[in-house]
Design a protein around this nucleic acid. Sequence first.
DNA 1: TTGTATGCGTTATCAG
DNA 2: CTGATAACGCATACAA
Lengths: 340, 340
Amino acid sequence: MAAKRRPTLADVAREVGVSAKTVSRVLNEDGPASAATREQVLAAVAKLGFQPNLMARNIRVGGPDTTVGLVVPDLSNPFFGAVASGIEDAVRERGLTLLMGSSADDPARERALTDKFLGRRISILMVVPSVGADHAPLKGHRSGGLPVVFLDRPGTGLATDSVVSSNREGSHEGVTHLIAHGHRRIGFVGDLPTKLYTRRERLAGYRSGLQEADIPYDRSLVVSAHDQEGAAAATSGLLDLADPPTALFAGNNIMALGIVAELARSKRKDVAVVAFDDVSLAEVLEPALTVVAQDPEEIGRSAAATALARLDGDRSRARTVTVPTRLIVRGSGELPVPKR
Amino acid sequence: MAAKRRPTLADVAREVGVSAKTVSRVLNEDGPASAATREQVLAAVAKLGFQPNLMARNIRVGGPDTTVGLVVPDLSNPFFGAVASGIEDAVRERGLTLLMGSSADDPARERALTDKFLGRRISILMVVPSVGADHAPLKGHRSGGLPVVFLDRPGTGLATDSVVSSNREGSHEGVTHLIAHGHRRIGFVGDLPTKLYTRRERLAGYRSGLQEADIPYDRSLVVSAHDQEGAAAATSGLLDLADPPTALFAGNNIMALGIVAELARSKRKDVAVVAFDDVSLAEVLEPALTVVAQDPEEIGRSAAATALARLDGDRSRARTVTVPTRLIVRGSGELPVPKR
DNA sequence: TTGTATGCGTTATCAG
DNA sequence: CTGATAACGCATACAA
């Protein structure tokens, strides 16, 4: 038996012996309806398993859908999960539903997803921009009244609201913290690609920290990796240098995992570490991991607040909200330079 | 200026001076179209910022939407993020897009989300059932040809495919592992509510492990918590008992974090621990954390494979796939019973 | 190569 | 209180 056609309003109406509009009225509690027909309709709806076609409804009503579309690069990175949670909490009160999809950090897939969302006439669009994506095509939507917010990274080709962490300042603070504990050779383990906004900003903060302390920038101390395993390998490479670093700065949570794993594997407890972005169990490690913590939930909440204000008619200029980071001192960042 | 009406096919057609159908043709690369009109149309589309209304399109075409809807209880739990990743990878090859939303483990919200998905005529519905949810309303859709898959937990009131971990066997193995190292007083720190399927199954495995070793079940050794902090407090309570456990079994990843955090805080390295579900940095802890690892990506892939087979016409009976767990021995589960 | 009539499932309008 | 009819934005069938 092939998939049967789904029941429509008309089917329900025929079943009961009323008009389609009457069924519609009952379901939407729109106009008046006698208790008798009401019950009959409800019974028929249950019997047939009728499910209103929201697309047909939307096409008729014309208004935007009550959905917030969110595009993230990676569904399995807890950072974006936390951001999504923050958004969800904030928009639910307004009756909006968050739907999240992945771009895999690929501009083409990001575009396909946003188009899908836009085609559905969502109420708010939130995007963690992929490297190389062009957001000029969103201009019309934004000027047409659709709130568009960039998260974690700024977009390209479109002036709209964005919410980012204080990447540069946070890294500067983290590196300065290491310097204050005597370190002068500090490795930077960053993610890829190197032109990723957050990567660039955090590297810039690292460099400004060094500069402030009159420590020359040494390119051989800056390495990159795609994932945790790569970060571990990169860490190993740094420690094998003729003049190895005495401290490491992790460019994000994944890099932090790789660094910590490699230091544990090689039983090195003398290397100081500060990581950008917190990770679970950081306080349990030995030494406990000192981090420049981001506030992903707050990033989400802030983005939601901005978007909701736009929905309420705020037509002011596009603004960039910077969510502050916070240095959490736990131990790994306060290790001294080993005597030699 | 209020939000202007979005441009439609007709608007584009008027702009160019052709019929709506012609515009439709170029956009869908459907019928033939002269290069001249083609360019004109494309120009007008860009100029007006026209975005086809996918709902109108879909309602006309009638076919299902190319979306896979996924309902999870918590967007910020990395376990579900990994499951989603597995699904995404598997369905993308078929041109399907994964969209994920949160039920917050609330039946009403789960229902609202599934209704929203169903109203959009998604191709596949995947649900991590909330406690207390009734899935009988999905019957019509499932028999109407919509693949419905339950993940991580079985659904209620609907016979359909589901994919779960080997919770009972895994727990049994984990507890038996502790017993093999001499432990007889083993605490169980589980999540809430206690009637949650995974919680019940894992507790059952714990009990069967004890029973097999002729160790009496002691209710005072079974505690529960909502979150990591709660798990830490529960752990503390267990260790304060007059006759405290010498080993702990964590009912899920969050409970594991709480246990590990509390043991670190109280500087207890003599308590053996086995956790259900792996956590990052488990191998770096001291002692490294022995776990009964789940395979969330595989759960996702398996669910996707099942659903795709249904889409291809598989009308065989509903089946339950059990994804095996794997005991990963790292150290914490092999600690001996302290001498006293 | 292009246009016209028609219908998808729903709701708004207006009449009964 | 209820129903007939038109309309939403788009695609199919057929004609030109």
